[in-house]
Design a protein around this nucleic acid. Structure first.
Length: 876
RNA sequence: GGGUGAUUAGCUCAGUUGGUUUAGAGCGCAUGCUUGACAGGCAUGAGGUCACUGGUUCGAAUCCAGUAUCACCCACCA
């Protein structure tokens, strides 16, 4: 006998292996319509977290659905080298072993890094397999493998030759822990509480005259080279031509007048540190001020600071406050909220710093990507992200792509004296150098390659092209590109999505994907973003162990509207697990039936299967539009309700033979067919349980697997039978309610009568419907009656009145009150309908069908009121 | 400062271009069930002025304007 509970552990790995053995995930170009997705590559040494689970479940659903529809489905997996994050991990690992990065050569370090990658790389891909991801593993790519590395270098050179790449000395975002520059998009700003220090500077040549500035970063005072005030500020007009003494360092600096200074803020007097603030830098340039860089790359104070040299910037801050305090320079200290930028990867406070870096001239790449998105050539789901995209693209800033790291693609630029030579290889660069300098004696040793590597996103923006080896050959690209859909979180819309669209047009002259489906962020119940540092993220694999992959997939999806945040709750996975179990037990029930070849199919069973077929077709229609609009959670819920409510709770109960009897084989076959179709439509969402049940339903030939079965074609929908069954369900529920209210056991059979009306006989005479009611409500006899005998218990369903005999005292007062209540509501409702119909403008303007419906409501309402009034009369 | 979105049951959310008599679901809650598939289950029920104020319309949870609260994104405030 099959066990009582569905056990995911026993089936999941078995079926995954089976699918792999059959090579179902692998795709090669053929005559079929392609359906392709490239995975957002997770960090190569990362582990699966909730965001990945959501994201990849959705991709798998879309891929599996496409496969069932007979398309050539190709889902390309891979990983990202994640230069900053991975390098930081390797550095930390080395430090623990007592090795300092600074003591290693570049090659030695890279050896360690590759070792680390070999050890931890790809774990995440194995975890995706546990989730059921049907990726084409033969295509697994890595942003730093040979093919992808080459593509990056080629693209860099190409951009440089086209004049879309340049090198410049600017104020950048510096991460003192990773010791690299960051792009604007890699800095996250958050309001943080800090102190605003009011510090007074003595005016030069006076005994006791001061100006007071306000700063949140007092340690930068050591790099001050001016104090600025607004030229319109009368408070400071007398300072024209004066100088002040910077405290601690006793440097004499000018007072400059600049409109930039906000008179309202603080004291209206601003200290200027050109080396450590972007605005100060601009002012410094304008007024020709000295630039004193007081910070080292690692965030400690440099020699130029003169004091606290070698101390960390935050330690130095504490020290200088104490010293200034003692010297009487601190006027006051205020609490202050302000925006602090932190590194996305290391979370340390970013320092503005001057340095020479490589940039992409984005202005030249904006078109035609912006238009493509605005005109839905690349369609966003949900649409609201078009705005966000438009704003960013329209105010685009150049992209800083160099990073002071080793783990990544080394910038293919070589320097000789003042010359910069960009080429794919050192030899080519040498050729260029010889040509430009006219010096034929130059050797490779004379050239010095750029020490930096490229931003990781500079390789991932090529992903939809590079995974198909698109920079070498267009064989596969022609077939799979543009890909069908990109599924990713909205948090990387700028970092990744926008740039991929730009690179797609730049190198393929074509969009990289037709659709972009933005998922929400997974948050915990307190709405906090799930993160490792908060420790609020459940262990993905443990969840799979507890609820099964199908259960977890259900949980991830059942409440995740596109672009909206998903508040993760284990309860949802539990619901998914229970759903698997429900399906499992539906199977057990069917398997427990004994069959009879020669039993005639009962009327109730014929009605039941006609009804269910129509319901199934109805749902198939709904699913089509759900999928088209990427309403995946709605699709899943719709399927769940079809299976749980319609199929298990009603259909199976309808056809279940009485104890000791057998099921007719015609109904059995129908039931197996329905069940199989249900498994196919659920398969994309919950692949394992559906495959298992699919095979237990009936003998299947080799290769007849659920994963490659075909998505059912819809059929006609019999509205009449759906309506009649709905009515029957209502009657059954009402009888069950009467039983519950009167404390009658469901086992006690009752008679049921319908009061004669225009339509009542039709109802009693429909053998299918009446036998279903008889069976499900445990009715002895269903008859039509001209009158309602005294003392019977009545209820209303639609516009029909029913009654039964319950051997129990009726509480007349309570009954009356209930009917009066209902009457009141029905009358109010009727008045509304009447008013509507009396309104000429309604009758004239509303569509005929709507008016017709209102008329029906009027007729039905009147009938109901009449029946209710009668019932009230009877109670007297 | 600029922008986007949200506000529907105790909680988390649906509500598909305005019209299905009574606005749905899951969880939670209440009552009763060891019902020959399932207690990871079954049956029944309670619970909502659709944030507020106006407007458009024959008709508004749905469209428009404003208000309030919240969330997020972007941007130079020392």
């Amino acid at each position: 006998m099959i066990s009582k509970h569905y056990s995911p552990k026993d089936t999941e790995s078995r079926w995954y292996q089976h699918w792999m053995d059959k090579n179902y995930f692998h795709s090669t170009p053929d005559d079929r319509e392609p359906y392709s997705i490239v995975i957002p590559p997770p960090n190569v040494t990362g582990v699966l977290h909730m965001g990945h689970m959501l994201n990849n479940t959705i991709q798998d659903i879309l891929i599996r659905k496409a496969r069932l529809e007979g398309k050539n489905a190709c889902w390309v997996p891979g990983t990202d080298h994640a230069s900053i994050a991975t390098e930081a991990k390797v550095v930390r690992m080395l430090r623990e072993k007592g090795i300092r990065k600074a003591d290693l050569t570049r090659d030695e370090f890279m050896e360690h890094a590759w070792g680390w990658k070999e050890k931890y790389g790809g774990i995440i891909l194995e975890q995706l397999k546990r989730l059921g991801a049907s990726c084409d593993w033969e295509r697994t790519a890595f942003t730093m493998d040979e093919t992808r590395y080459k593509a990056v270098i080629e693209v860099f050179v190409d951009l440089y030759r086209k004049g879309k790449l340049y090198r410049d000395y600017r104020m950048v975002n510096w991460d003192p822990e990773a010791q690299t520059v960051l792009s604007n998009e890699e800095v996250l700003y958050a309001e943080e509480k800090s102190s605003l220090y009011h510090v007074r500077y003595k005016i030069e040549g006076t005994a006791d005259e001061w100006v007071t500035i306000a700063t949140t970063r007092p340690e930068t005072i050591l790099g001050d080279t001016a104090v600025a005030v607004n030229p319109d500020d009368e408070r400071y007009a007398h300072l024209q031509g004066k100088r002040v003494i910077v405290p601690k360092v006793n440097r004499s600096v000018p007072i400059v007048f600049d409109k930039y200074v906000d008179m309202e803020f603080g004291t209206g007097c601003l200290k200027i540190t050109p080396a450590h603030d972007p605005n100060d830098y601009d002012i410094g340039k304008k007024h020709d001020l000295e630039v004193i860089d007081t910070l080292n790359d690692n965030g400690t104070l440099s020699e130029a600071a003169q004091f606290y040299v070698g101390e960390d910037r935050f330690k130095a801050r504490k020290l200088i406050i104490k010293d200034l305090e003692e010297a009487g320079h601190i006027v006051k200290v205020e609490e202050h909220m302000h925006n602090v930028g932190r590194s996305e990867r290391t979370s340390v406070v970013v320092e503005p710093k001057l340095s020479l870096q490589w940039y992409v001239d984005m202005q030249q790449l904006v078109e035609p990507s912006l238009g493509a998105v605005m005109e839905d050539t690349v369609e966003f789901f949900p649409k609201k992200f078009k705005n966000t995209f438009n704003y960013w693209m329209s105010n685009i800033r150049d992209w800083c792509i160099s990073r002071q790291l080793w783990w990544g693609q080394r910038i293919p630029a070589w320097y000789y004296e003042e010359g910069v030579f960009v080429a794919e290889t050192a030899e080519e660069a040498l050729g260029l150098a010889k040509k430009e300098t006219g010096n034929d004696n130059l050797t490779l040793d004379d050239l010095k390659q750029d020490e930096d590597v490229l931003d990781t996103w500079f390789s991932s923006w090529l992903w939809p092209i590079s995974v198909f080896n698109g920079f070498e050959t267009d064989e596969e690209l022609k077939y799979y590109y543009p890909t069908s859909v990109l599924v990713t979180g909205w948090d990387i819309i700028f970092l990744w999505v926008a740039r991929m669209i730009m690179s797609g047009y730049e190198w393929q002259g074509e969009r990289p994907f037709d659709h972009v489906y933005f998922t929400g962020m997974v948050r915990d119940k307190q709405r906090r973003k799930m993160s490792k540092s908060l420790g609020n993220s459940p262990d993905a694999l443990e969840l799979i162990d507890r609820f099964g992959a199908d259960g977890v997939r259900f949980g991830m999806l059942s409440s995740s509207p596109a672009g909206g945040d998903l508040l993760f709750d284990e309860k949802l996975c539990e619901e998914g697990r229970n759903f698997c179990n429900k399906i499992w037990n539906g199977l057990r029930l069917i398997k427990s039936f004994s069959l009879s070849e020669d039993t005639e199919t009962p009327d109730g069973n014929i009605a039941a299967s006609r009804w269910f077929e129509s319901r199934l077709n109805q749902v198939l229609e709904e699913l089509n539009s759900n999928f088209q609009e990427y309403r995946l959670s709605e699709a899943l819920i719709t399927i769940k309700r079809l299976i749980w409510d319609d199929f298990c709770s009603w259909y199976l109960e309808m056809i279940k033979p009485p104890y000791g009897e057998s099921l007719d084989s015609a109904t059995y076959e129908k039931t197996i067919e329905f069940f199989g179709k249900l498994m196919t439509i659920l398969h994309p969402f919950m692949p394992f349980v559906t495959e298992e049940v699919w095979h237990l339903l009936e003998e299947r030939n080799s290769g007849e697997d659920c994963i490659i079965s075909s998505w059912p074609k819809g059929g006609s929908i019999n509205k009449a039978i759906i309506k009649n069954i709905e009515l029957s369900k209502d009657i059954v529920s009402k009888i069950r309610y009467l039983r519950a209210k009167n404390e009658l056991s469901p086992k006690e059979a009752l008679p049921l009568s319908i009061q004669k009306s225009e339509t009542s006989s039709e109802f009693v005479n429909d053998k299918g419907i009446s036998s279903i009611i008889l069976k499900l409500a445990n009715i002895t006899d269903f008859s039509e009656s001209a009158t309602t005998p005294e003392g019977s218990t009545t209820f209303l369903s639609g516009t029909e009145k029913f009654f039964t005999q319950i051997d129990k005292e009726i509480d007349i007062e309570a009954e009356r009150a209930k009917i009066e209540e209902e009457l009141k509501r029905a009358r109010g409702f009727l008045i509304g309908v009447q008013k509507k119909l009396e309104n000429e403008r309604f009758v004239q303007n509303a569509p005929a069908a709507v008016v017709e419906k209102e008329k029906q409501k009027l007729a039905d309402g009147t009938a109901r009121i009449k029946i209710l009034e009668e019932s009230l009369e009877n109670l007297k």
